[in-house]
């Protein structure tokens, strides 16, 4: 478990004057599933494309399944399974034809494995791809991405456009066919409620930076919502890890990371504080649109 299957260090990428990824560092231990969370346009797809060597990066070190994506992209593709966002496949081919078409590109392609995925994912073999439902074509994309038994699997928003039942099925397949077999998975998603059940770790990407990475379970313990009195806000500088501040009269509702630390401090000073847990959705929102600066605004306003 100590080896990283995916290692990203200080990755920078700009498109012209627009900075898309800034100093992104991410380690994914072998066998873990990591969900990459972020709003639209925060650099998720750019990062995934960089991991696969589909995009030259400005600077930074990348290693995926033991390969450098920039220089060993052929070997990398043999070791990695990839499903693009809205994966396009030749619509006039059938599932079987697609498998025959792809097989020569992959020395480790396993025909019987491809066959068993088609069977397990319930994909019709002799129907043209353009006639498949959205769910079926995502599953076909996954089947062909896995048919060469890759160690590392990279999925760009695989659940996009799937109905709730198909999403659940898809998660089940992810758990059964990837996690249980010890593969390393990185996937991007917007569906946070589902990510919680499936991912070992989450990484929150915002405006080109990873603002938080950690085990899914400890993230939910560390980030909490506290209700505190205005007196506390006026008396001390903003605590570290503050993510959001809202005011209601003489009460403040704050969201804070590493909440245990601040809670301990406040209770030792004799303040009564109420803390409550948050959903992954709320945590994500606090990270990407939280307004921690309101703390110091209040402190300044009260002094004036």
């Amino acid at each position: 478990m100590s080896d990283s299957a995916i290692s990203v260090q200080h990755l920078h990428k700009s498109f012209g004057p627009q900075v898309v990824l800034q100093d992104v560092t991410l380690e994914v231990p072998a066998g873990q599933t990591v969900a990459l969370l972020g709003r639209n346009g925060t650099g998720k797809t750019t990062m995934i494309r960089a991991l696969l060597g589909l995009l030259p990066v400005d600077s930074g070190n990348l290693k995926v399944a033991g390969c450098n994506p920039a220089t060993e992209s052929v070997e990398l593709r043999r070791r990695v399974g990839y499903l693009a966002e809205d994966q396009s496949m030749y619509g006039w081919m059938t599932a079987i034809e697609l498998c025959r078409f792809l097989q020569p590109f992959y020395p480790h392609w396993n025909t019987s494995l491809a066959d068993s995925y088609l069977k397990r994912f319930d994909i019709p073999r002799q129907v043209r791809i353009e006639r498949l439902s959205k769910g079926q074509s995502v599953k076909l994309g996954l089947a062909v991405a896995l048919a060469h038994a890759p160690q590392v699997v990279i999925l760009d928003d695989p659940a996009l456009g799937l109905d709730p039942v198909s999403r659940k099925e898809f998660n089940r397949d992810l758990v059964e066919h990837l996690q249980a077999e010890g593969r390393t998975v990185i996937y991007s998603s917007h569906l946070l409620d589902e990510v919680e059940a499936v991912a070992d770790q989450v990484a929150i990407l915002d405006r080109g930076r990873i603002v938080r990475q950690g085990p899914t379970e400890s993230l939910r313990e560390d980030v909490q919502r506290l209700v505190i009195s205005a007196e506390i806000v006026r008396q001390r500088p903003a605590p570290t890890g503050l993510l959001d501040v809202r005011r209601a009269g003489e009460q403040f509702e704050i969201v804070i990371d590493d909440a245990g630390h601040f809670l301990g401090e406040l209770t030792s000073q004799g303040y009564a504080v109420t803390a409550s847990g948050m959903t992954l959705d709320d945590i994500f929102e606090a990270y990407v649109i939280g307004r921690p600066e309101k703390w110091s605004d209040t402190a300044i306003a009260s002094k004036a």
Binding site: Q32, N171, R172, V175, E176, Q179, A180, A197, V198
Partner: peptide, 14 residues
């Protein structure tokens, strides 16, 4: 562990 993880569609490690 594997069966329950699959049944609930929940991470195996969890």
């Amino acid at each position: 562990v594997r069966e329950l993880a699959q049944q609930l569609a929940v991470n195996v490690n969890t």
